[in-house]
Each structure stands twice: as C-alpha cells, then as structure tokens.
Amino acid sequence: MNNTVIRLDNISYSYTEDYNSNVHDLVIDHLEIKKGEMLAIMGSNGAGKSTLLEIMGLLCSPKKGDVYINQLRVEANNRSDLRRQVPVLLQSTYLFSTTIFENIALGLRFRKVPEMEIHSRVNRALSIVELTPHANKQYFELSGGEKRRVDLARVLVLETDILLLDEPTTGLDDKSRAIIEDVITELNQKKCHTIVFTTHSHDQVKTLSSNVLRLHNGYILNNEQ
C-alpha cells in the first residue's frame, strides 16, 4: 500500500515575476514524502526552502509539474479542498487583529466546524503551546516567542496528519523553542503525523531526529537518510 502523502513530479518554479527575489529557479524532478516522516529542508538563504514548502502547501503554483496530496493530483477544482490538508506555518507570523482565542479558532471557522467543538479544540491547542492564560488577550499583547506559539497553535488546532512549518523556531527564546520542538516530536512519534520543516540549525535536526533534504540554488543536493 502506497503511503506517500506528498509527491512532487517535474516541478519547475520561476521567480522572474517576483521583483524581490534574486533566487534561481526551483527545479525538482521527483520528491516523495512518506506518512509519518519527519523531514528537515536545509539550505542557505535564497536556496528555495520557503518556496518548496509553499508549493507543498499549495500556496503557490509551480510553472509546470504536478503535486499530489494524499495521492490525489492537485487540479484547479480541488486545490482549495486539498490545501486544507496541508496547513503551513509561514516564516513570519501575522496575527489577525483579534484575540488569541479567535486567532487560533480562525482555521476551524473557515472549515465551518461547530461552535462547541471549536471551543474544546482551541483550548486544547492553547494548553499544548502553554498559552492558556493568554486566551483573551489581544494580538498585540504578546512577545515574539508567544506570538509564534499562537501561530503554531493555529496550525495544530486543525488536527491534520500533515504539518508544514517554515523555520518554526528561528529567532525564538529558548523556552518557546523547547515547547515547539516538544510538540513537534510528540506529534510525529506518538501520533505518526508527517512533519516537513525548514531550518538552519543542525542541532534542531538532531533534536528532532529528522531526515534531511538539502537545497542549493533551487536544486536538491542529496537525500540523506
């Protein structure tokens, strides 16, 4: 039985329409991510890590090539639906101008989850990232690390089997980093969730015992086991 959750075939992404980028085109011949895998994508700045993650998260479309999520090929008519299976923690956190609780609940509201269930799931997510006392605070009242944890909670609360995280702990205080790394580990080892994240830190790779994929100038260097 095929347990590939994300598959990329013949992907080519061009940055020429993007004014701010000086990165080379991203080219991926073939990439398969299996269920329960913990994968770290590494590479220097501008190598294409965020873009690769966003392509997997169906947030941007490659110029050519196919993406498969849970063995379904992504097309125009199923894009929005499949996107809900691959939530992304973006590199920079944008909190919406409302309470912490509502920020976390947002993704559930998009999915029209019933109110009672939203309540219990959000509270659960809050306790996982250790932010329960802050639930009713406004988006601007937290520290950088706390905001990042809210961002993580936003994604966790969706309870998907796949999580895509772009530099989840870069620049954070030790406490926040530790909490986030613990959550990620637990999700992967206890619940068999597939986690793909980008990082600069070899230490983190070690802590999370992940496989590594190295990107350089838009190409995959090698796939270390």
């Binding site: 809900r84 992304v88 923690l89 920079s92 993704g107 994604v155 969706l158």
Partner: peptide, 22 residues
C-alpha cells in the same frame, strides 16, 4: 501576508476576501 496566512489556514476565496476587509 494576510492572504497567504488565511490561505495557509484553509480559507476559501470568499473567506480570504472577507478577512482581508475585516
């Protein structure tokens, strides 16, 4: 940023539109 974050959390086109306005 708003559009990307909303989409990353699973917003549809209409939902993204509404949250952008909000």
């Amino acid at each position: 940023q708003i559009t990307k974050t909303a989409k990353a959390l699973g917003a549809s086109q209409l939902q993204t539109f509404l949250i952008l306005i909000k």
